[in-house]
Design a protein around this nucleic acid. Structure first.
Length: 612
DNA sequence: CTAGGGTTAG
């Protein structure tokens, strides 16, 4: 066995020269072989050879050994080798630190850096700092990151493009957009490259500040003479376009993808798929999906999500089966997609079945996010008590709890279950999460139940405590502009025309037998057309901002054009039904999408307000 | 000489 390996590995004759490496000295031979080894057995052998040939204390040679182990993802062996080094240098330290980064162990990377700091014999250099900031970024640890940033400042290292880019990224991942921007601005002296710009654009994109991301992308293109956007930057810009729901910008980015020849890049393709889906064009999303050659769990999950969001639950489940059939292993996000699909298409029993069997069948253990999805599903379909019973059994942290009880709150609201709304709101208020939404919901619930005084006093309480809710809104995109309609806002010039139009539409809908939602759900600001029979509630109709967006679109967009409505409200099945009826009446395609609220919580603290 | 930064699905 051993003999064969040696033959295979090191001294096998090559075509041109019988023994191409024999003329090399032992050390050069070791270095050469170590740098090209992609085989753990070979590296092990070279390890032995290093020791036998007496290079154990040669830092340079052992560094090669270390790096070889790191590349093979054998970071623990690398660490062991490192521990036996007589005189590790800065490269040795940095290699091990970045090895832990690559293995998804940023915590260990940081403690290695701390060890290095306490050891004092080897000061870190730019390479070390770049790796360490990457670790902080992975952990979203701005407190530690700031301390190390301070060490960098006093270390006397000249500012360096790579280090500064890693800093921008780190602050971005820690949701400290302003500091990220300050670092980015300070880079004017040391030179920015595509990576630096991408870091800053990504910072904006990932912190729900899509407009600034796009704006910065524009400046990059205006300012940069030699650098063109690459796949990293494009993926980020496309993702910013999706979170804004701006198909126009997404299409421009798609053009740049084609021009740059990045279409076959999976990451770019996935971001395009997601963008088309979120901007309302499921058919374009599907085109992208069908062009992907090498599918992964992410490409499938994205398409499953897309179908789910557009209400094609059965198709999403079918796609899931296809994926499993191809032996692509689903992960927890995939199952969220499937549950989402069931939830949005009324496949309640199927959804429950998925929840109960996912651990056994697919090896994914349901976590609070899956349960939240199912609570939402039960709630939408009217099985509010089951939703409540399920919610009570789930142990969650504050942030997840906010989503869980938020879902239940919507359910209670949707079905006029004041005691559920009240319970969910209280939990939200207690956990100090989404306090304003909870107050609003509670107040609305009181209002529906006729407790106008309670409702009024709650609103006063909110005003006193400074809880001002970001307003729900819907918007419609046309060529170059976006028209935003805020809840309760009828200030636009055409309001009279729009109201007349809506009244007429409601009449037509009734003639076609559309019942609309129950009157209690009017207050959810999710229902589209409803019977307005009580004067006292007239004012609330203004809450239905997607009606306004829709009417505006129908009145102003050219005949035959598709109308895309984005909103940041939670829509129920009735709304989708209503849009179908409207679509038939006006003979136009109407695409409605809930802006992904989840996105806003992705990195912690941002709010939906930043969309506008 | 050997080591470093940015991207996609909820």
């Amino acid at each position: 066995m051993k003999k064969r390996l040696i033959q295979n590995v090191s001294l096998a004759p090559a075509a041109t020269s019988p023994f191409p490496l024999l003329h090399l000295k032992p050390k050069a031979f070791l270095l050469h072989k170590l740098s090209e080894s992609t085989n753990p057995i070979l590296t092990n052998l070279l390890h032995t050879l290093t020791l036998k040939l007496g290079f154990a204390s040669d830092t340079f040679t052992v560094n090669h050994l270390l790096i070889s182990y790191v590349k093979l993802r054998e970071v623990d062996t690398a660490r062991k080798v490192f521990g036996e080094m007589r005189e590790p240098n800065v490269v040795s330290w940095t290699s091990v630190i970045s090895g832990f980064n690559d293995m998804g162990q940023p915590q260990t990377a940081l403690s290695m850096f701390q060890e290095m700091h306490e050891d004092r014999s080897v000061p870190p250099n730019e390479y070390t700092f770049a790796s360490v900031f990457k670790a902080c970024s992975a952990l979203a640890e701005s407190r530690i990151g700031k301390c190390i940033h301070a060490r960098l400042e006093i270390s006397g290292l000249r500012s360096n493009t790579v280090v500064s880019s890693s800093l921008v990224d780190m602050y971005g991942k820690c949701n400290d957009v302003e500091t990220a921007r300050r670092v980015f601005d300070s880079m004017i002296g040391c030179g920015r490259n595509v990576v630096s710009w991408t870091s800053m654009i990504t910072t904006y994109a990932q912190n729900a500040r899509g407009h600034e991301a796009i704006e910065l992308f524009r400046s990059f293109n205006a300012v940069s003479t030699s650098d063109r956007p690459n796949q990293f930057m494009l993926a980020s810009v496309i993702s910013a376009s999706s979170s804004l729901g701006r198909l126009q910008w997404g299409k421009v980015a798609h053009g740049l993808v084609t021009r740059g020849g990045y279409e076959s890049n999976n990451v770019v393709a996935t971001s395009l798929l997601d963008m088309y889906s979120k901007c309302g064009s499921l058919s374009c999303a599907e085109k992208i999906f069908l062009n992907i050659r090498c599918h992964t769990v992410i490409t499938y999950t994205s398409m499953i999500m897309a179908k789910a969001k557009h209400g094609f639950g059965e198709a999403a489940v079918k796609l899931f089966d296809e994926m499993v059939g191809k032996r692509i292993k689903p992960n927890y996000v995939t199952l969220l997609g499937v549950l989402h699909a069931c939830s949005h298409s009324g496949l309640v029993n199927e959804g429950l079945e998925f929840l109960n069997s996912m651990a056994e069948k697919h090896g994914v253990i349901p976590d609070p996010r899956h349960y939240t999805c199912v609570v939402d599903m039960l709630g939408r379909s009217g099985r509010v008590d089951e939703a409540y019973d399920l919610a009570k059994t789930i142990e969650v942290g504050a942030e997840q709890g906010a989503l869980l009880w938020g879902a239940l709150l919507s359910a209670g609201r949707l079905h006029g279950r004041i005691e559920i709304v009240s319970e969910a709101s209280k939990r939200l208020i207690q956990s100090d999460q989404q306090v304003t939404s909870a107050y609003i919901a509670l107040s609305n619930a009181y209002a529906v139940a006729g407790g106008w005084e309670d409702s009024e006093s709650l609103r006063l309480e909110m005003k006193r405590s400074g809880n001002v809710k970001e307003r729900a809104c819907s918007w419609i995109e046309s060529k170059e502009s976006v028209y935003v309609f805020h809840a309760g806002d009828l200030s636009c010039d055409e309001s009279g025309e729009i109201e007349r139009f809506l009244k007429d539409m409601e009449k037509q809908m009734k003639e076609r037998g559309h019942r609309g939602s129950s009157s209690s759900s009017m207050i959810t600001s999710s229902s589209v057309f409803i019977d307005v029979d009580e004067e006292a509630k007239e004012e609330m109709v203004n809450l239905h901002c997607e009606r306004l967006a829709l009417a505006y679109g129908l009145l102003h967009l050219p005949a035959g054009s598709t109308i895309r409505i984005m909103n940041n409200l939670r829509m129920c099945r009735d709304c989708h039904e209503a849009f179908k009826v409207i679509s038939e009446i006006v003979q136009r395609e109407i695409v409605v999408r809930d802006v992904n609220r989840f996105h806003c919580f992705k990195n912690g603290s941002c709010t939906c307000r930043d969309f506008w």
